[in-house]
Nucleic acid binder design. Structure first.
Length: 805
DNA sequence: CAGTGAGCGAGCTTCCGCTTGACTT
């Protein structure tokens, strides 16, 4: 018999709270939602007042059964899910599923996991807020209807398995539109002029002063004329202005800001960040990691203050309370912070340590004093020109929070170099130039989104929730709308004119432009789907759609709007559009005709079954099958040129014969390659697949052979399928297409055929992990085999020692 | 790893938000 059963959403939270409450309380968790709309018929009876059809998903059956048992024996059940729309709905679903009557049920809420907050909550129970529950229900149903009615339209009109949704479709839209801005962008260059000046103080000490001209020149000619002119000029300090300024720390992390900083400072993708944070949370090192709140509990404020005063001194401490700016924040939790501020570092994997350290610094810094700076700006006049140089320097008078933490920004990579102290120049001081340089600088296109910067944008627009940012990003990648890619940059020349002494010289230098790493690129499918949805479902695609829905949901939550009429006024016109689109829209093929008649042939590109293709259609022979060539990575249906399309048909190129076998060059998934005797050799970078000659190819083939020979350690006569080879990670055993690890402490050359057979056997016994292999016959037997492999095998131990460090 | 690209048309795909496993390399 349990006196009090408390149900929260997360097991880690349950553990903590149990410690705060006495023996009379058992705390358990629901693992989030316990019911959802069923899948068939979209889970909604529309004609029956949008009646939702709820079901317990398969993976929640066990949880619900356990909760049922506990609830039955409990005197009082405390529903303690989060204090927001979703949390209220979870409580309601629990009450329904567990068949709890009102007398034995209490609803409590708290938004920080501290002893005082919990005990306070227990003393102030309330009832389930039906308006809030209805608001969640309307949200859920609307999302289901949007997703499950539009997606099938895409299957029919574009491609199977595609998806659309209130959140994901605008996320894709952002990426598509950014890509088009970049395509439409043309770089313009200007000449930026910088000078290094010599300044000598009264004692004869020489200083170098770095300064930049206030104006940039449009052309090389103007820049050169300016440099020519100032050859004979006198330079003098016209004014020196000192200005105090201060910097204020950023608030502690929310999910979104954590993802951004971990991306910038640690180069983690958003799901990696969340996985690591989850581990820190589960081991009690940080507070909850899915939050939109920047609030810190009073206990946290007090303990951070203690730590700061002790470690840095009292003047470094400044208690701050932050207010959330984002529109949709539900603030059910605290900001992300260390559970114990006095732990500057924690045990764990390197990445856990790194992320914890970031969270600790950010939270600590948020409670520290402003940094005080002094910025000095000196203007330098030019005797024969009205233009001026400006030199500036910045000194930190008091470091404050900068002692522990500096926030990064997305443009840091191209950032200005940090300004140091300016030499002790004074008004009227004369300067001589050491050199003056005009450098051609190109304007830059808007930046592509990273995972984290997309999250930031979505959050700003109030689209999506902390628990869905990372999953949304992986969904749009899984659906083939977005690729996270690396792109090689291109070389570009820029002009540099330098004046040293009387000598004016100009040179060309090269820089790499357009190189990208870990950026989100839209696919052709994304562009086609985006345009299709924009055309037929502009309301859903509107960036303000979610905000509008949110407002109505808030009205429902306040009891000022009826959820059924809200859904009805959305759904009726929406459903008409769906029907109309199915009926009247054309199938999307994305065809672009590059040239209608190119020597009797039409050159076009379009989306085919296996992706985007270029197509040559013979206009004179309607019977002839068109020729096809797939587009290469980086090429897009909407930007590929006629020349690029025609180039695609020049490959594969037949170079001739070598040793009686054909030599062919082509471009594959991993770049240009040579195929000979059904073997592949990558083309070396210095060769072009369109022009490479047979003799050059033969050299590469021979080189590859030599390398392969070195790779091969031994082939067993007993069975030539068994080969020992040298790979990237040391020797390994290859049997047919399957590779096997060789125990570390064994010399591969010494292995006999019998040894190798044993290695294979051991591996298979261990439940072989290969994808190509036939799967284990019975999945139910998995547990038993797994156990065996860990306990029994002495021999296998060797193969697994690698894991231990 | 790297060729395909039409088709009789089965039966499948899909949303957003709450949560953690149980699995790999």
């Amino acid at each position: 018999m349990i006196k009090n059963l408390v149900i929260v959403e997360s097991p880690a939270k349950a553990k903590t709270i149990e410690g705060f409450l006495g023996k009379d309380f058992v705390v358990t968790s629901s693992y989030g939602h316990v019911r959802d709309l069923e899948k068939k018929n979209n889970g909604v009876e529309i004609e029956n007042g949008y009646k939702p059809l709820y079901t317990v998903p398969a993976d929640k059956k066990a949880v619900v059964n356990d909760l049922k048992k506990l609830a039955k024996t409990a005197e009082t059940v405390w529903l303690a899910s989060d204090e927001d729309r979703e949390g209220e709905a979870i409580s309601w679903h629990l009450k329904e599923v567990l068949k709890l009557n009102t007398e034995k049920t209490r609803r409590i809420v708290f938004h920080e996991i501290t002893r005082s907050a919990i005990t306070n909550a227990i003393q102030h129970p309330r009832y389930i807020d039906d308006n809030l529950v209805e608001s969640q229900q309307a949200r859920r149903i609307l999302d289901r209807l949007v997703g499950f009615e539009i997606s099938p339209v895409l299957w029919r009109k574009v491609k199977p398995s595609l998806s659309a949704g209130r959140v994901q479709s605008v996320a894709v839209r952002l990426i598509v539109e950014r890509e088009r801005e970049i395509d439409a962008f043309t770089a313009e260059s200007k000449f930026k002029v910088t000078g290094i000046f010599d300044f000598v103080d009264e004692k004869g000490k020489l200083y170098k002063v770095k300064a930049e001209l206030g104006e940039r020149f449009d052309t090389e000619k103007e820049a050169a004329e300016f440099l020519e002119k100032v050859k004979d000029a006198q330079f003098a300090i016209e004014s020196v202005v000192k200005k105090p300024s201060k910097k204020t720390p950023a608030p502690p992390f929310t999910t979104s800001t954590l993802q951004q900083e971990a991306s910038r400072k640690l180069r983690y993708g958003v799901s990696r960040t969340m996985m690591i944070a989850q581990r820190l949370y589960e081991s009690g090192k940080i507070t909850y990691m899915r939050t939109d709140s920047v609030n810190l509990s009073d206990e946290a404020l007090a303990s951070s203050k203690r730590v700061i005063s002790k470690d840095y001194g009292e003047k470094y401490s400044k208690t701050r309370k932050y207010k959330t700016k984002s529109a949709n924040a539900q603030e059910a939790h605290e900001a992300i912070r260390p559970t114990y501020f006095d732990k500057e570092s924690v045990d764990g994997s390197p990445e856990e340590k790194a992320l914890y350290n970031l969270i600790w610094k950010r939270a600590i810094a948020s409670q520290m004093a402003d940094a005080e700076l002094e910025k000095t700006t000196a203007k330098i006049s030019i005797s024969n020109s009205g233009l001026k140089f400006t030199a500036s320097g910045e000194v930190i008078k008091f470091d404050g929070f900068l002692k522990v933490y500096i926030e990064s920004s997305d443009d840091d990579e191209n950032g200005k170099d940090s300004e140091g102290l300016l030499p002790p120049v004074y008004e009227g001081a004369e300067l001589k130039y050491d050199n003056i340089t005009a450098t051609e600088r190109y304007s830059r296109p808007p930046a592509r989104y990273t995972e984290a910067s997309l999250v930031k944008k979505l959050e700003e627009m109030g689209i999506g929730r902390p628990s869905t940012y990372a999953p949304t990003i992986s969904t749009i990648q899984k659906r083939g709308y977005v690729d996270k890619e690396e792109r090689q940059g291109k070389e570009r020349n820029y002009r540099v004119i330098t004046l040293v002494g009387d000598n004016l010289s100009a040179v060309d230098k090269t820089e790499i432009t357009g190189a990208e790493k870990g950026k989100l690129f839209p696919t052709d499918i994304a562009m086609l789907v985006n345009d299709f949805l924009l055309k037929y479902f502009p309301k859903i695609m509107d960036y303000k759609f979610t905000a509008k829905v949110e407002k109505e949901l808030d009205d429902i939550a306040r009891g000022e709007r009826n959820w059924v009429t809200m859904l009805d006024s959305f759904y009726k016109p929406f459903h008409d559009t769906v029907e109309d689109t199915i009926e009247n829209s054309e199938r999307v093929v994305g065809e672009r005709i590059l040239e209608e008649d190119h020597n009797g042939k039409r050159i076009s590109v379009r989306m085919a079954r296996f992706g985007p293709v270029a197509q040559i259609t013979d206009l004179n022979d309607p019977e002839a099958k068109p020729e096809y060539a797939g587009l290469r990575s980086g090429q897009k249906l909407e930007t590929i040129t006629l020349e690029e399309a025609l180039d695609l048909f020049k490959l594969p190129r037949d170079l001739g014969e070598y040793e009686g076998k054909k030599v062919v060059v082509a471009i594959g998934r991993f770049g240009p390659y040579i195929r000979h005797d059904s073997k592949f050799t990558s083309l070396k970078k210095e060769y072009d697949p369109y022009t490479v000659q047979l003799d050059e190819a033969i050299v590469m083939i021979e080189e590859k052979r030599k390398k392969d020979a070195e790779k091969l350690i031994k082939v067993f006569e007993e069975n030539p399928d068994y080969q020992l080879q040298n790979g990237r990670w040391g020797p390994f055993l290859k049997v047919g297409k399957q590779n096997y690890k060789i125990p570390r402490d064994v010399d591969a050359k010494e292995l006999t055929y019998e040894d190798c057979v044993k290695i294979v056997e051991e591996f298979e016994k261990g439940g072989g992990k290969s994808k190509s292999k036939a799967p284990a016959k019975k999945t139910t037997a998995k547990k038993a085999t797994a156990k065996k492999t860990t306990t029994k095998k002495a021999a296998a131990k060797k193969t697994t020692t690698k894991k231990k460090k």
